[in-house]
Simulated scan of single mutants.
Amino acid sequence: MSVMERLDQDMKQAMKDRAALKLSVIRMVKAALKNEEINKGRLLSEDEVLTILTRELKQRRESLHEFEKAGRVELASKTREEIDVLSAYLPAQLSEDEIRDIVREGIAATNASSKKEMGKVMGAIMPKVKGRADGNLVQKIVSEELPS
């Protein structure tokens, strides 16, 4: 079942269950996906859907950080719940060790020998981890694995 189909089914179920937060998050995601379809003038591929879901999740994580920093406990709590709802639609996240293995393969494949070639390595790795790893974590690991 595609992510879009799951979103439709879960939206119907959230309406039946009167799960206001889940319904709100699903509607927001569906609106973002619909806007992207309109902009592109075609239906989105599964990969594009995952990209948008990842972007929405990243926005929530950034908001959570800001709410916690400002001491806004009620907003931070709501944002954590939104993150949980969004996370359910993304593939399982890779562990740090799995990412490190992929990074090492990417370094070997691109013959990168210094941090100056980090962009080349990131370009080779990101399609492999798309939707399954945080880009900042991947960048940190690439930086650690490449010699100065």
Rank of each mutant, 00 (worst) to 15 (best):
A92H: 11
E46A: 08
D17S: 11
P91C: 01
I26G: 01
P127H: 07
E5D: 12
K120C: 07
G123H: 09
E37R: 10
V29F: 07
I99R: 01
Q139T: 15
E82Y: 04
D10I: 00
N111F: 09
N39A: 14
A108Q: 10
S87Y: 02
L44T: 05
M122I: 13
I83T: 02
I26N: 01
L90Q: 00
L90A: 04
E117T: 02
M11G: 12
Y89P: 00
E62Y: 05
K140Y: 11
R72C: 05
A14D: 02
A133W: 04
M126C: 07
L43Q: 15
L146Y: 08
K58D: 11
I52T: 07
K34I: 09
G71V: 05
K40D: 06
L94P: 06
F67S: 03
S63I: 08
T110Y: 00
S77G: 06
S114A: 08
A124S: 12
V85Y: 00
A124W: 15
E145F: 05
E68Y: 04
S63G: 07
I52M: 03
M126S: 10
L86H: 00
M118A: 14
P147R: 14
L33V: 06
D97F: 03
V29N: 03
V3W: 04
K116T: 13
I99K: 01
A92S: 13
E5L: 12
K58N: 11
V103G: 02
D84R: 12
L33H: 08
I26V: 01
P127E: 06
Q139A: 15
M15T: 13
L57S: 01
K115T: 10
I102W: 03
K128F: 02
E96P: 06
T79W: 01
